[in-house]
Amino acid sequence: MKYNLTHLKELESEAIYVIREVVAQFENPALLFSGGKDSILCYHLAKKAFHPGKIPFPLVHVDTGHNFPETIQFRDQLVEKDGVELIVGSVQQSIDEGKAIEETGFNASRNGLQTVTLLETIESNKFDACMGGARRDEEKARAKERFFSHRDEFGQWDPKNQRPELWNIFNGMKHMGENFRVFPISNWTEMDVWQYILAENIELPSIYFSHERDVFMRDGVIYADGEYMNKRPEEKVEKRVVRFRTIGDMSCTGAVESPADNLEKIIEEVAATRTTERGTRADDKRSEAAMEDRKKQGYF
C-alpha cells in the first residue's frame, strides 16, 4: 500500500479541511454561489465535507439581473433537488434603492455593482465568513490571496497588510463587524477543476458546452445577445457555435467558438489553449490592476 494521495485527492482533502474549518471557526458562514463551475465545485466539496449531514450554511447568489437564463435554471433545480437554503442579493434592488448607480454606455456592466449588493447582503444577513470559488491561478492579484482573507468593516481587502498564513493553521479571529472571505479551492488550476468535474461526474449548466447561440462581436470578444445588451449599430447579431469558459454577468462574459460538447473535449481544449480563461472577461480588461482594485473595494 502506497500512502500517497494523488494531487487531485490532495486538493480535495485540503478544500474539505478548509470548509470544515470555516464552519468550526465562524458563527454564520455562507457559500457564494454564482452558478459557475468553481462555485458548483465548492458546493460539491461542501457536501463531501459534511456527509451524511446537510451543509450547515446557505448558498448566496449575488444576482445582477443580467444572468444567462441557463444558469438561473440550473441554480433553481439544484436548490430544489438538494433542499439547500438559497439567499439572493439583488443588484436591481440596490439600484432601485439608490445604493448603486447603473453604468451607462455600450460597455455598461453590472459586474462592479455586485460589490455593493454583496456587502449589503453580508451585512443584512450578518455573515461572518463568505466562501467563494476564486482560484490563485486565475488572475495575478488573486495569486496573492490567502485561504482566509480578512476584510475590514468596510469589506475591503488590504493586500499589503495580509496576515501571514502558516502551515494549515487558519486564523479566523476578528473584531465585531469585520468578516472573512474564504477560498477553499485556492490551489486548484482550471485544468484541475475540469479533470475533477469529469472524475466526479459533476453536473454543470449547459452553456459550458458547445451550442448554437445569437452573438455579436465587440473588441474581439464574442458576446451573447440578450435583452440587456446595448449594441452599437454596426454590431450585427449572428449565429455561431460557442461555449463559455467562465460564467459571469452576461454583460462582461465572452464566449469562445468551440465544438466541445462534452467534458472530455473541453479538457482537450483547455490543454491546448494558449489564453487564460479570464481572457474572455471584459471586467478584467478595464485596466491592468482591475481585479486588485475591485477586490480592495470588497469584491470577492
Binding site: R136, E139, K140, A141, R142, A143, K144, P159, K160, Q162, S186, N187, E288, A289, E292, D293
Partner: peptide
C-alpha cells in the same frame, strides 16, 4: 509580481503562488 505597488516599485512584497 501581481500587485500594483509591486509593479510600480519593481519589488515583490508578498508570497505569490
Amino acid at each position: 509580481d501581481g500587485l500594483r505597488s509591486e509593479r510600480e516599485q519593481g519589488i515583490t512584497i508578498d508570497v505569490a503562488y
